[in-house]
Amino acid sequence: MIDRVYVVDDDDISAFVTSMLLESECLAREVECFLCAEEALHKLLHGPEENWPQVIFLDLNMPVLNGWNFLDAMTAQQQRFLQRVKVFILTSSVDPQEKEMAGQYMLVKGFLRKPLDEVAITYLKHAV
């Protein structure tokens, strides 16, 4: 069981679905949803490390600060997050190019398609 999970997604319904799933599957003890990526990033960079999530589900297509900007910002302080925060891309449509691009980030541990299903949940249970 993961202590804390961030869901960073501007789509409120998607965030609702994801958090509900994580809870019902007992994957995460605490799910924090961010409709604004900037807020999540601010918390990560400036908040106390003990409040850090072990897993972040990150949407890519967001206004103002998109998933890539988010990843770039984290990567800038990558050493702090490696081993402690695992990022999973969670996007509605899987683009092979985006998938490959995501693979470039050491922080990204997986590329998942919305909505999370049983297979993905099982995988996540093993992966984290």
Partner: peptide, 24 residues
């Protein structure tokens, strides 16, 4: 085409997620 498919996919993904969740 890509954007449209992405934006079509987004609500569909939500619907799929919600319909799976509802029976539970």
């Amino acid at each position: 085409t890509y954007i449209v498919s992405h934006n079509l996919r987004a609500p569909v993904a939500n619907i799929v997620g919600l319909t799976r969740m509802l029976p539970k």
